[in-house]
Design a binder for these strands. Sequence first.
DNA 1: CGAGGACAGATTTTT
DNA 2: TCTGTCCTCG
Length: 834
Amino acid sequence: MPHDDKNAARRYPPVGAEDDLPPFDLPQVPGTGVQGAEGSASPVQRASISERARAAALPPYLTGLNPEQREAVEALDGPVLVLAGAGTGKTRVLTTRIAHILATGRAYGSQILAVTFTNKAAREMKHRIGGLVGGAVEAMPWLGTFHSIGVKILRRHAELVDLKSGFTILDTDDQLRLLKQVIEAEGLDKDRWPARQLAGLIDGWKNRGLTPSKVPPGEGFAFGNGKGAALYAAYQKRLKELNAADFGDLLLETLRLFMEHPDVLADYHRRFRYILVDEYQDTNVVQYLWLRLIAQGSPNICCVGDDDQSIYGWRGAEVDNILRFEKDFPGARIIRLERNYRSTGNILAAASGLIAQNKGRLGKTLFTDGETGDKVTVMGVWDDEEEARSVVREIEEQGKAGQRLNGIAILVRASFQMRAFEDRFVTTGIPYRVIGGPRFYERAEVKDALAYLGVTLNPANDLKFERIVNVPKRGLGDTSVERIHALARARDIPLFRAAREIVETEELGGKARKSLRDLVTAFERWRSLIDTMKHTELAELILDESGYTAHWQNDKSPQAQSRLENLKELVRFMHEFETLEAFLEHVSLVMDTEQGDDGERVSLMTLHAAKGLEFDTVFLPGWEEGLFPHQRALDESGEKGLEEERRLAYVGLTRARRQAKVSFAQNRRTRGLYQSALPSRFVDDLPEANVEVLETKSPFGGAYQNFGNPFEGGFGRGGYGKSRFDNAEPRFGATYDTPGWQRAQSYEKTKSRDENWSRDAEQRRRSAMRPTITIEGELIASSAAAGAGYAVGTRVRHQKFGLGTVTDVDGNKLTIEFDRAGRKRVVDSFVTPA
DNA sequence: CGAGGACAGATTTTT
DNA sequence: TCTGTCCTCG
């Protein structure tokens, strides 16, 4: 992660420091110059001469924009909402707009506030702005995530919100540990009132901008015998005592700071001339309030988003924010980007038809000048296994036909669906990657290591100390820890100091006393080395001396190896930072490791994780009622939930450049039970004209259909539930109404498409020559590199299944008896010799 | 302390 | 059905 503000986060320069930075060295637009030095008044009005001159000599970054994009880039004055549909060049507009502000000399980089939701997006923006203006991105200190900008502001004014500038940022584990303590301190049963639930509540409140005193009485009441809000207050108090903030605080406390200290707010008003917000549809209440406060200083706020892609309502996002933009910012200009550069006509039409069923949209109509392309296919299959088999079979065929695997993705609604696909990939030997899921920094071993480093740096970090005091096991059980706690409480000192003192007493048993003394001594020694030893070496030393490395080396579980790898990766990653402190600061906010290009692989991920990505071919399995839309979304959020699910379907479809393939299973194994399911209503939402219904292809030919294919005789017949294909009144004027006809037609389509396949070869070759799509996100699992031949009896290791013994070899297919996972058939490239 | 059994819970996930 | 967590027992 090359460009994050690792340094900026370490020093806490006073407000105004960067204003002295020199302006970008940019090719100046004719007739303009860098105007308005620091602190000067409103942007200088351009003379019409310069306007004309500028139009005559279009700066290079403006060429290639379509009229709407260009309008969005050039509308610098006043509030602007850019409604950017999927694949319409949203990021391009945002980055070009920034380049434009800089190039026209309207503001310095340090006077632009640009917020994103994810580090990935921030990184991408920095990268692309760098490309446009030539690497001067270091001078954009206020481009970052809401959270990272929040921290930056809070560090500067920490005392005003009862913190000290060096406050630590709690991760989820720390937060839970602390909440558990708070719950117990209130005399509540921690089993009856799980910390997780309280964490959820508090998060929700913080997302809505509610401090403890503002929590609506009814809401706090549901938890802990009516003590919900009190627990929240107690938690906040503890946070201050620990000089710590959780993620929610990074926003909420900044908001409080602004509201309680208008002079501070005014500073930022003066500072920010231009405000840009990415993914506005995902903002929650705090973020919204935060932005509104800051925007009081400048009308030049530009929010970019797509109400149709709002899929994070469940974690506090308010679509309303984007729907309400015009009211919030009177005189706002609304610019719609509707020209899609990604998908074929059929895919776009199908997606548009689907999303049109939602109410309460701002409304956009995507179009493309590109080819019509293949229709979206819909396929019903017998069950989830059959679905995985047929999808993977098709991927195999496409792969053989020369389609790049990096251009193929399977997008599922819930992660348990991935399993069936992974199994098929493993048995067929098709390389795949899983994107999303638990992140690097969330892994236990990484957190443990970070805890060691954190305590070394800051012995007052109680939560981290508690995390590793007995990891690896060193005989310091609950009793010992509780005694340390008691002393710490009694004397009002950090745990570490209490530990140091308690070993001088007789309070602990001999064994515990010795290991605690050793631990304390070790930490003190490590601490003494901080200034003299290189931080990466120190980290290695700590991990070795603490016994942590050995702990995993001695661990026999299949994951032990990869955990050790992760530790190495962590240390490797530290090299990019100057100091231990800088590293830890960065890590608490950002910890996605960039994934290198690891060759051609099919991508497997959830629909949520797919937002922002694109693929040539997208498989969308599991379109069944109850799964997608998910039952819980319907139960908990009713119509709103349904619409969000539909937007998720829309996001899924619009990831596809050339082919979108929907499927659903009539039966699915869920929680052990084999249950029948109805096709998703979203299948019915697709416009007939852009859909092609596929026959279930089966390796068993007709015989298979005889015993199981529910589509014998067509959709919906035979008691498998109603489908739109039964509808007496086809909504889009379909020209068929009998299942037989429909089947025949789809067969024809399939055939002619296959024939077109070779004719399209040229086209495909061209698309294959497009630059490889970058798949950002985190690689969680993937097949291993190619393996060699294995003999029966060989001990091997599999990434997922662990150790096992080869019992049969058939070409490159091995039958392996796994110690833990039982017998599996696996392609040899997925295992390594043990 | 560690192993093994009982038990609940099983969408989506960033920071 | 599977997983992760908690609790008990040796």
